[in-house]
Every structure is written in C-alpha cells, then in structure tokens.
Design a binder for these strands. Structure first.
Lengths: 143, 143
DNA sequence: TTTTTTGCTATCATTTTGATAGTAATAAAT
DNA sequence: ATTTATTACTATCAAAATGATAGCAAAAAA
C-alpha cells in the first residue's frame, strides 16, 4: 500500500504513518520490552487482535520502520526488528510517557509508576539508553 | 463519555485520549496557528468532517484538554482554548515534527520546511516559546 | 429586514477495528 | 517415526469509527 499523505504538515504526516491505536504500542513493545515475534506482540495487556497485528506489522515494514526476517536456525518464527527510523521514535515515546505521567494519572488510577526509570532526572539520557540497549539487542539477535 | 483505559501503560493511556487521526492536529492548530473556532478548524488543509470535528472537540473538552466558552460580545462563536494540560502536549508535537522532518521527508515530497523555526538549534527553547505565545493569546482572548 | 455566517446535527456509505475460529508449517515431545 | 504443541498467520463477521454531504437554527452583518 502506498502512503498517501493528507497534507505537507509534518505532524499530519507522522500521524498518517503511526497515528492509529496500535503502531506506537508495537514500537514501545520492541523498544522497551525487546519483543520480536508475532506471539510476543499478541500477549500485550492491551490484547491486539491477530488480524490487526498482521496488518500493522505489514504496514510498518512497508514504511521502513521495522524489518521482518527468519533466523537460520528457526524457520517458523518471524523476527521483527526496528530499523533506525523506528528506533528514532524513542524521544516521541519519552515525551508521551512524561505527559501521561503528569496529566493522565488522575484519570487512570491503574497507571504504572515511571519514577524508577529516571525520566524525571534526565530524559535524554534515559532515552538514549533505551535506544542503545535496543541496538545491542538487534546485534545479538542477528549474530 | 467515560475514559476507559486499555491498560496501565502511560503510552497506551495517552493514545486512548489523543490516539486518533485528528486530536493532535487540533492541538497543533491551536498551539501553532492560534485557531479558536469551529470554523477555524474546519478549514485546515486536511479537511476534517464537521461531525468528526464536533465529536473530537467534545471529547477533548470532556478530558480537560480544552475549554469551550462564548465571549460576552459574541453569542454566536464558540471559543475553544487549550488548558495547561493541552499546552503541555507541545513537547510531544515538537518531537513528532523533528522525527517527521528527518524520516518522512523522503516519502512526502510536499512536506513543509521547518528549518526557519529553529527546532534544530534549540528545540526546548522553541517549544517553550510556542507555549508562552499561546498562553498570551489565551490571556488576550479572555480580556 | 434580508442575507450571510457560524456551529453545529442528521444521514448514510465506506473503512477500520475487534472477536473468534480455523489452518498450514514447523518444532518439540514421546 | 509419530503424535502433540506452537507459531504465524488468514477468514469471517459484527461493531465502531470515519468521511462526505445536506440541512438547519441562531446570531450577526449588510
């Protein structure tokens, strides 16, 4: 499917790629929890339906945010990994987490604490740490 | 309508409030272009349908991101203004703009340049400037 | 007092999402 | 070698959200 952008606005363009209910959660699962397979994504607490998961992964791959491949020793599992383009969404996720922590906690009493992650101390450091961790995971996975 | 959160994840919770195709564009219109009325929002380049616009404004108001009011000298126009909760989305929008500029420009040849805005020089300064500008606009509007 | 503008609502077609069942291929267990 | 289990989906259908357009009442402007 071809990306058909609504306008020349950078914000609108981003939403045209990842502005649905699920894409950013998949990026979160990969970046923060190191999820890699269809099964991994299926068991998130938000319970994505397989049809939607399938469609999103395809879309993200088509748009260069993730890659899909099989490892030599396992012909069954597909391994989905973020590209640099996808890894660079980390700062967006960080700002969303900070906004949520400050502004939505009152509405969602079940929200996890983020205090221990260190975002409040140095968000750019924590963000860079998450990105570098993920890059290491990619290297390990492919070696 | 009651906010029903999918999980305790801060990212998912944010998407449950503003994770649709339009909400963040409305925030953009207000913050960056100072849009305030139903008409203003109607004439965006992305062409939002009136029914959806109506639903989104209601939703954002219910969730405390905007206020709706009439000014004493005009009983026809409704004035929609961001609350602090809404204004604090500015850093999220900034990171989205930067990601888009770097990663989507190739795909969307029509994308506006953001060079002159100064995001690349000092993003937190530009973001704070946008927020303070908007706070001034709110003050002026209500005085 | 007519015309225009604003802020919607109503209607209906289309698209997207969600829930669930089922299937083929591979891998693991016996 | 054969059964069992796992993985990665696809198929199906119901429900919800989106999109396009028309229309309408109240207020403002002419």
């Amino acid at each position: 499917m071809k990306s058909n952008f609504r306008s020349g606005c950078p914000v609108a363009s981003t939403l045209d790629i990842i502005g649905d209910k699920w894409s950013l959660l998949l990026v979160r699962d990969m970046l923060v929890q190191g999820k890699k397979t269809f099964k991994d994504f299926s068991i998130s607490p938000e319970k994505i339906a397989p049809g939607i998961l399938s469609a999103r992964l395809k879309w993200l791959e088509e748009n260069g945010l993730i890659t899909k491949q099989k490892l030599p020793d396992n012909q069954k599992e597909n391994i989905y990994l973020l590209t640099e383009k996808g890894i660079e969404l980390a700062p967006v996720i960080t700002e969303i987490i900070l906004w949520s922590d400050k502004n939505l906690r009152e509405q969602n009493s079940e929200m996890f604490s983020i205090a221990e992650a260190g975002f409040h101390q140095d968000k750019s450091k924590v963000t860079a740490g998450i990105q570098n961790n993920y890059r290491k995971l990619v290297e390990e996975t492919l070696s």
